Measured scan of single mutants.
Amino acid sequence: RKEMTAACTPRRRIINLTSVLSLQEEINEQGHEVLREMLHNHSFVGCVNPQWALAQHQTKLYLLNTTKLSEELFYQILIYDFANFGVLRLSEPAPLFDLAMLALDSPESGWTEEDGPKEGLAEYIVEFLKKKAEMLADYFSLEIDEEGNLIGLPLLIDNYVPPLEGLPIFILRLATEVNWDEEKECFESLSKECAMFYSIRKQYISEESTLSGQQSEVPGSIPNSWKWTVEHIVYKALRSHILPPKHFTEDGNILQLANLPDLYKVFERC
């Protein structure tokens, strides 16, 4: 597991931080080997919608929660590849102030007048994250320049770009939802926020969305749709870069829909 690298990086740093090793061990302890084997050997059937997909393993048909699986995938990559990410360069710098204002204007932020003026909160978020810029760049390849612009994001899987519609809320939550006081809790909560931002979430995906850094293989055609990215990038990574937690067998994120021999018997009677 320590050699797990989802995106190509030129050289690998050895990380011996106790906090990170502890988080890696927790993933191992909570892992479910049968689910790992199923995901490793599954045959992708198709997307139901951005949140759900169908896959077959041996004779069984499964309904998989793409949102939760991708979130767990990105969390584990962030923990196992800690401080070893490439950088996704933004085509132009994104001012943190503008991103924070967009987030505060969104109902998702939960902002009320009692929280104070949005401009003041946005300025605080910019200054707060600028103070964390060195650590964010060093460990997470999340790059913020001296003017308070976001200029780079971590490359977690080759050819995958997170849904940038979720970027404003991500920046807001970096400042408000991460435990910045304790090292282990900081790395864990920061990785979880980043994983949620990178995950496939239906509120940020339309039929026209593209999450891939590449064009489709047909010359002159439109960019790959999110469905292509889910199948050929995300579920491909799920084959080798995730140890599913045991609770996925109990919380409805992986559901067995049918045993195909039983279905064949039904059709034979028709």
Rank of each mutant, 00 (worst) to 15 (best):
R173S: 15
S22L: 09
I171E: 00
E146K: 02
R1H: 11
L88W: 06
G86M: 10
Y235V: 13
E147V: 07
R1F: 14
Q203N: 05
T112Q: 10
I27S: 13
R173G: 15
Y204V: 07
P162T: 01
V178L: 01
T112G: 08
P245V: 13
S212P: 09
Q203A: 08
E26A: 10
L155R: 07
A6M: 13
M38R: 11
P219E: 05
E114K: 02
V34E: 08
Q30I: 08
E147Y: 13
E71W: 11
A6C: 14
D145W: 00
I169N: 12
V230R: 04
P162E: 00
E3F: 14
E3V: 11
K130F: 15
I15Q: 09
V234Y: 05
Y235L: 13
E147R: 06
L69W: 13
K2D: 15
G86K: 14
N253Y: 04
D262E: 08
N28T: 13
H232F: 08
V48L: 03
L121K: 01
A94F: 06
H232P: 01
D145H: 01
V218N: 05
E29C: 13
D262T: 09
S191I: 02
V87M: 04
C186A: 02
K131N: 10
S216M: 07
W111E: 02
Y198P: 00
G213V: 09
V34Q: 07
T18C: 12
Y124K: 01
G213N: 06
E127W: 15
R13L: 15
V126N: 03
Q56K: 02
F248T: 10
Q76C: 07
S43G: 09
H241A: 10
S221Q: 05
V45H: 02
I77W: 11
W111C: 15
D115V: 15
F85T: 13
L156P: 02
L23V: 13
I254L: 07
M135H: 04
Y264E: 04
M196S: 07
F44H: 11
L156K: 00
Y264M: 03
E165M: 05
I171H: 00
A83H: 08
G31M: 11
G213R: 08
K246F: 14
T229Y: 09
D145N: 05
L174D: 00
E217C: 07
T66Q: 01
K68I: 08
L64G: 01
D145P: 01
K265H: 08
R201I: 07
F97M: 02
F140N: 01
T5D: 12
P154G: 01
L156Q: 00
F267P: 05
E177Q: 05
A175E: 00
D115Y: 15
V34S: 08
D138F: 04
F267M: 11
F128K: 02
E127P: 01
L54A: 08
N259R: 09
A100M: 03
K60H: 10
V48H: 14
F97H: 01
V126C: 05
S22C: 12
F85V: 09
L156S: 00
E123A: 10
S221L: 11
E165T: 04
L155Q: 10
L155D: 08
K192M: 10
S141N: 10
H40F: 11
Q256F: 11
F187K: 04
A55M: 11
G213F: 08
Q256M: 07
D105Y: 15
E146Y: 12
C8G: 05
E127Q: 03
R11P: 14
D158W: 04
P168Y: 12
L17K: 03
E146R: 03
P163N: 04
E146C: 07
E29L: 10
N259C: 06
S221N: 08
E25N: 12
P95C: 04
Y235M: 08
F197C: 01
L23P: 15
R173L: 00
I157A: 13
P117H: 14
C270A: 15
S216W: 08
I205E: 10
Y139W: 03
L142T: 04
E113S: 11
R89N: 13
L136N: 01
D158S: 06
A103H: 04
M38P: 03
E177V: 03
E127V: 08
V266N: 15
E193C: 12
E29A: 09
D105G: 15
L63S: 13
I151C: 06
E29S: 07
G116R: 02
H57P: 00
N41Y: 07
P261Y: 14
L104G: 00
S191C: 03
D145A: 02
A94V: 06
Q214S: 05
S212R: 11
M4K: 06
S43A: 09
F44V: 13
K118W: 15
P93E: 07
Y75G: 11
N28K: 04
W226D: 06
L88I: 09
S109R: 01
I171A: 02
N259P: 04
L104V: 01
F187T: 05
K184H: 05
F97C: 02
S189V: 11
L136G: 01
I222G: 05
D251E: 04
I233W: 13
E123D: 07
E193L: 02
E3H: 13
P261A: 04
E182A: 04
V45G: 09
V161C: 04
Y124D: 01
E231Q: 10
L153I: 05
G220T: 11
Y139H: 04
R36F: 15
K227T: 04
V20K: 09
P95D: 10
N28Q: 10
L174N: 00
Y62Q: 06
K68R: 09
G213E: 09
E108D: 04
I222L: 10
L174F: 00
E71L: 06
S212V: 11
C194L: 13
D145V: 02
P244G: 14
S91C: 10
N49W: 12
G213L: 08
L104R: 00
V20W: 14
T176F: 02
R89T: 10
Q24G: 11
W228K: 10
E268I: 13
T5A: 08
T9V: 06
V48G: 13
G148C: 08
F197T: 01
Q76L: 14
P162A: 04
G148H: 05
Q215R: 08
K236A: 13
G116L: 15
L142C: 08
K131E: 14
T18N: 08
S19A: 06
A83D: 14
L61H: 00
H247G: 05
G252V: 11
D105F: 09
F140E: 01
I125C: 12
R11L: 14
Y198C: 07
W52E: 11
K246G: 12
K246D: 14
V266P: 15
E127N: 02
L102C: 03
T176P: 00
E108R: 03
W226R: 06
S191M: 02
T59P: 13
H232V: 14
Q256L: 11
Y124C: 12
Y198N: 05
T18S: 07
E71Q: 04
E177K: 01
G220D: 07
L63T: 13
N49G: 09
T249R: 10
E29Y: 14
P10T: 09
L150I: 12
C270V: 15
G252R: 09
G86A: 07
L121C: 01
I79N: 13
Q214Y: 07
L136A: 05
V48P: 09
N149V: 07
N16K: 05
W111P: 02
M4D: 08
E108T: 04
K236W: 15
